[in-house]
Design a protein around this nucleic acid. Structure first.
Lengths: 204, 204
DNA sequence: ATGATTATTTGATAATAATCAAGTCAACCA
DNA sequence: TGGTTGACTTGATTATTATCAAATAATCAT
């Protein structure tokens, strides 16, 4: 993978991103200082421009990513159309869940929506660390659990909330998203067409 | 909780259920013989009649259940209507994910659809075992992961597959379900009304 | 078996959002 | 600065499924 800024632990963006990552890790499941250090060192850091593809279609996804700055998006093609599966703003993890854990080629594509600072840990490294450190295994278990909980909430929302409510809840929870992410991405993330979202916004 | 058949390790149904449970556990993540024994002993067993409520609404869910015989269902009320969230046939786990992991009162209700043999492990016991045995922590991580993967597939299906396709896929994967579970349960599990399901079956 | 209850089907209408087709607007760039 | 491109909006129509209401079928208890 050819990245635009090479891994460099002396860069400001590295320290900045690492700080954010460590905070996020600790808030999921606290690790002992030694384990945290080991874990931290396993994460790579990349500075990438807007629209940079982190995961290509039909590739086995090797990384869990963390967005320390910028925005990234997961999408896929359904009947020739882009469907946004997830939008990750600053300070959140993202990954192609099925491909990463099942080790199968991904139909999902991950790319940056803005110039971004991305941290990532390789699947094999993470599994190795999980084997060596019970604490990291627990951390991953908690991460996956919180992701599962989110997934449950989202399923309920998609199934029962009318489009307007889904939009309003997103605005409430994450108002900056419309400033930073094209409407077409947001529409399919909400499970509606761009036209419907446009009408909702115009309130018709 | 007053159960209809008390915990009795000498019963046939106990051995039968335990065998099924152990097979299922091992297929998720293999455990060493010693750990497996410890883990196995932590599971309780109950024989319950049809329509027995395993988890009441607004109660914190304390158990992960395993259906060794029979069928159980998870549902909740949405605008005064029952919505089936999950139907667990023989040999599968079920739990109120949000309540069990977040320790919050459950809006979900779990009950048996048939006379059933149920195994269950208490939240606190499981957490204790996770702390003591890295292998069990890993097992739980894998269980939650596979549940997350399922959840992703289901979200996609609910969002994009037309009702007819969802029904057909269920029939293909689990044809015995219509013999054993009322249509109204299946309809809301598929995310459609009973009337729509009836029309799909009549092919109109 | 019989009446009562519950489950399922059928019909008519309405609501929601998708689709298709064009139009407007704004940013970019040569 | 004029033209091209991409992003968003608007309009007309259609498809899917929900809703409401009622009828029929199946099941259960006495």
């Amino acid at each position: 993978m050819q990245f635009f800024s090479f891994y460099n632990k002396l860069q400001f963006s590295y320290f900045y991103g690492m700080q954010a990552l460590l905070n996020r890790i600790q808030s999921t499941s606290a690790l002992s200082p030694q384990t945290l250090t080991t874990f931290a060192n396993a994460w790579q850091h990349w500075s990438v421009p807007k629209d940079y593809v982190l995961l290509k279609e039909n590739t086995v996804s090797d990384y869990i990513y963390f967005v320390s700055k910028g925005v990234a998006r997961i999408y896929y093609y359904k009947n020739g159309r882009e469907i946004t599966e997830w939008i990750a703003m600053e300070d959140t993890f993202l990954l192609s869940i099925i491909s990463f854990f099942k080790r199968t080629p991904s139909k999902l594509i991950i790319h940056t929506v803005e110039t971004s600072e991305i941290m990532g840990i390789h699947h094999d490294t993470l599994m190795e660390l999980c084997n060596q450190h019970h604490e990291i295994e627990r951390w991953l278990r908690k991460l996956v659990t919180s992701s599962l909980i989110l997934s449950q909430y989202r399923m309920d929302s998609i199934q029962f909330e009318p489009a307007q409510q889904r939009y309003e809840r997103l605005m409430e929870k994450n108002p900056s998203i419309i400033q930073r992410v094209p409407l077409s991405y947001i529409a399919s993330f909400l499970g509606i067409t761009q036209e419907t979202l446009s009408r909702i916004r115009a309130n018709r």
